[in-house]
Write a protein that binds this DNA or RNA. Structure first.
Lengths: 366, 366
DNA sequence: CCAAATCGATGAACCGATTCAAGGACCCCT
DNA sequence: AGGGGTCCTTGAATCGGTTCATCGATTTGG
C-alpha cells in the first residue's frame, strides 16, 4: 500500500484537496460535519497528516535553525565552549518552538547534511577557526545568518566580545603581579593545523581573527608595562591537550629560563597546561601563574581554581539566536570581565629575576 | 529579483531542466561544453544550486536524524546523560555525513519543530520519562525509529541496559557492606511531576519503566539480604537538586533514625544528595554511603568520587544511531557494571548504631 | 424583498527539484 | 547503405502540500 496523500483523502471524502488541507491546518474554517467526514476518510486509508516535506516546499519555512561549526559534531558537543553556546541557543529555540540542528562544515564535502543541503531557516555560524569560509558558504546559500566570534560581517548579524581589550586585561593582570617573562598558548591561526613557536613572520600571516585580536591585546598590555618582547614566547596550539603538552615541553625545556606565567587563549588549554606542568613537577601557581580565557564551568572547579577572562558564552548563543529569528543585522559586542581566582600569584621577587637577567640570553622567538 | 530556479537556468542556457539538474548532481553525464554553458547561465542569474527542499520532496531523503526527548532542548544539552547520548550519536553522524537535530516533545504542541513536523529520516527516541507517548507519536509518523531506555518495542529497534539487574547489583553492594536502613532516591514515576514518599499504592501505579525496573532490582537485593522493607524509604524526585534536597530533608528529619546509605537512580541525584547532606553537616561516606547510577564523568571527579553503576551511555547513542541508519529492529541490551569508588563504606557497627539511636538528635540546619 | 455580507468549499497555480524511458546524433563496421 | 552501438539530452511524470481568488449558498440588514 502506497503512502496516502492529501489528494487520496480528498477523493475518498469527495471534497477538494484544499479542504482536506484546511481540515488539518485550519479546522475552524471547515464545517464540522464535513471535517469529520474527511477525518474518517483519512483514518480509513491510514493518512498520517500532511507530509512536512510538501509543506516546507510550499511555505518556505522549516522552523529549524542550524548551528554551523567547522569541526565535527562530536567535537562541538564535547567542548565546554560549544556546549554553552548550544545551551544558549537552545533556550531561545525552546521558547520559540524552533528546532535546532548542528551542521558540521568540517570537510569540504557537499554530500549529506551540509550548509548547502540543510533545510533550515537560517544559520548561526561559529568559526572556531575564525575563517571566513563559513560566511562565504552561508552567503552563497542565501539564507539569513548570524556569525559568532567572527567580527563584523557586512549584511549579516554578528555577536562578539572585544577580544583585544579582554586579552589586554588578562595580560595586565599578570604584569601587575610583576610577571615579565610570559608564555602565550595561542589558538590556531589558520586552518593548517600547524603547531609550533610563533615568530614575527608567522604573526604577520595570521588569518583567524580571534588569535590575532588576543595577541594584539596581550601586546598592548606588555607595551604599557615595558615588558621586553624578547621575554615573551608564543606557541600555537590546537586547543587540545597534546599540543599544549608540546608547547609546555618547549617553553619549559631544561637549561632554559622558563616563563613565570602563562596566558592561554582558552580554559581548555589553560587546564591542559596545568596538567602538563604538574607532570613536570611544576606547581601552579607557585612556579607558574596561569590565566585562561572563557571561564568555562570547569575553570572554577579546577584545582587551583583558574584565573580567567569570563565571556558570556551562553548569552552569545541566546543573542545570536534571537537576532537570527528577528532578522537583525547589527554587530553586537558582549562584555567580558577578569575573574581572579587562585591560579595567579605575584611573580618571584625582583632580585631573583634581576639575577636571572644577567644570565645568558634565552632563545628569542617573537 | 525572485530567486532563480532550475528551470530559469534551463531556459537561459537553452537546455532542459533535467540537464541542469544533471550538471549539478552528476556532472559526468553532461558534455563539458554544455556543462560550462549551464554553469555560466546559472552564475549569470545568481542561481545558488538546487534548493534542498525540492530535492527532499522528490528523493524522500533528508540526511538528517533526530534525537527526540520529552524535555526541553536546554535540559538535554545540560544533562550529563543527555550530553553523552548525543555525543555517541554524533560520532556516527560524523562518520556517515548525516545531520543531527534535537526534537523536543516537551509540550503537546504540534507547531514549530515537532515529531509530526520534523523533516528527518528517522528518530532516536529517548524517554527520560519512560512514557510510551513518544513511541506512539513516532509510529504515527511512519518513520523508522529506535528507542533508547524504553524496553522492547515491537516493530522498532531498541537499546537498553538491564536496569533491574544493575540496580540489584548496586543494592547488593550496600547490603554486602552491612547497610540495613537504606533510602532510595527515585526518578519520576510518571509525567505528573510529583515528588514525595512512595508507598505500596504509589508503587503499583508507576508508569515509567526505568524507575520500576530499578526499584524491583533494589528489592531483589533486599530480599536476598533479608533487609526489612520497613527500613527502606523511597522518595520520588525530579532528577534535580531541589527535589533531592527535599527528599534528604525528609529522610534525615530530626528525631528519626536516618538511613545509613542511599541508592540514587542517577548520578545527578547522587551528587545533589552529597551536596544536601554536606549542608546538613553529614559527611559522605562517613555518615552516609551513596551509590549513584550512570557513571557520568562528574562522578569520578566528585569528592568523594562516587560509587555508581556504569552504563555505556555514549555507546547507547552509537548503537542506536547505527541501528537506525541500518534499519535494524532488534532489542539490544548493553552491559553495566558496578564501579566502586569512595562514596561507600561499611555500615556502622550494630552496637554503635544502637547507641546512636538513643542519643538526642543532632541539631540540623536545613 | 432586494442588496450586502458571511461562510464554506473549490480548483488551479505554484513551490523546486529528480528521474527515467525514449529519441536524436554520431560513429563503426560490414 | 544499413544495422548496431554509444553517448547525450529531452520531456514529462512525480514528489505532497498551501494558498487564494472566486463562486454558490445562506444570513443579515434596511
Amino acid at each position: 500500500m502506497k503512502k496516502a496523500r492529501l489528494k487520496d483523502v480528498a477523493v475518498l471524502a469527495g471534497v477538494s484537496q484544499g479542504t482536506v488541507s484546511n481540515v488539518f491546518n485550519r479546522p475552524e474554517l471547515v464545517r464540522e460535519e464535513l471535517r469529520e467526514r474527511v477525518l474518517a476518510a483519512a483514518k480509513k486509508i491510514g493518512f498520517r497528516g500532511p507530509a512536512p516535506a510538501g509543506r516546507v516546499l510550499r511555505s518556505g519555512r522549516s522552523n529549524l535553525i542550524a548551528l554551523v561549526v567547522d569541526a565535527s559534531l562530536h567535537y562541538i558537543l564535547n567542548d565546554p565552549f560549544g556546549q554553552k553556546l548550544l545551551s544558549g541557543i537552545a533556550e531561545v529555540c525552546d521558547a520559540e518552538h524552533i528546532g535546532l540542528t548542528i551542521v558540521s562544515a568540517d570537510a569540504e564535502r557537499r554530500d549529506g547534511w551540509s550548509i548547502e543541503s540543510a533545510i533550515v531557516d537560517g544559520f548561526i555560524l561559529f568559526c572556531i577557526t575564525e575563517d571566513n569560509t563559513l560566511v562565504e558558504l552561508a552567503r552563497r546559500r542565501g539564507l539569513p545568518f548570524v556569525a559568532v566570534d567572527s567580527g563584523e560581517v557586512p549584511g549579516a548579524g554578528a555577536v562578539d566580545v572585544d577580544d583585544r581589550t579582554a586579552a589586554a586585561e588578562a595580560a595586565r593582570h599578570l604584569t601587575g603581579l610583576g610577571h615579565r617573562r610570559i608564555g602565550i598558548l595561542s589558538l590556531e591561526m589558520d586552518d593548517k593545523e600547524r603547531t609550533g613557536l610563533v615568530d614575527e613572520a608567522r604573526f604577520a600571516t595570521i588569518s583567524y581573527t580571534t588569535p590575532r585580536s588576543r595577541l594584539l591585546g596581550y601586546r598592548d598590555a606588555f607595551a604599557e608595562a615595558d615588558v621586553d618582547p624578547a621575554d615573551v614566547v608564543v606557541y600555537e596550539c590546537l586547543n587540545d591537550a597534546p599540543s599544549v603538552e608540546e608547547a609546555i615541553r618547549v617553553m619549559f625545556a631544561p637549561g632554559r629560563e622558563h616563563p613565570t606565567a602563562l596566558l592561554a587563549m582558552s580554559d581548555t588549554m589553560a587546564l591542559a597546561a596545568c596538567g602538563a606542568l604538574a607532570r613536570m613537577g611544576l606547581s601552579v601557581p607557585h612556579d607558574v601563574s596561569i590565566v585562561g580565557f572563557d571561564d568555562v564551568p570547569e575553570a572554577e572547579r579546577a584545582s587551583p581554581p583558574l584565573t580567567t577572562i569570563r565571556q558570556p558564552v551562553e548569552e552569545k548563543g541566546r543573542v545570536a539566536a534571537r537576532m537570527l529569528l528577528a532578522g537583525e543585522r547589527e554587530h553586537r559586542v558582549l562584555p567580558t570581565s577578569l575573574v581572579v581566582r587562585a591560579s595567579t600569584i605575584p611573580a618571584p621577587s625582583e632580585k631573583r629575576s634581576a639575577r636571572a637577567a644577567r644570565e645568558p640570553a634565552p632563545v628569542q622567538d617573537l
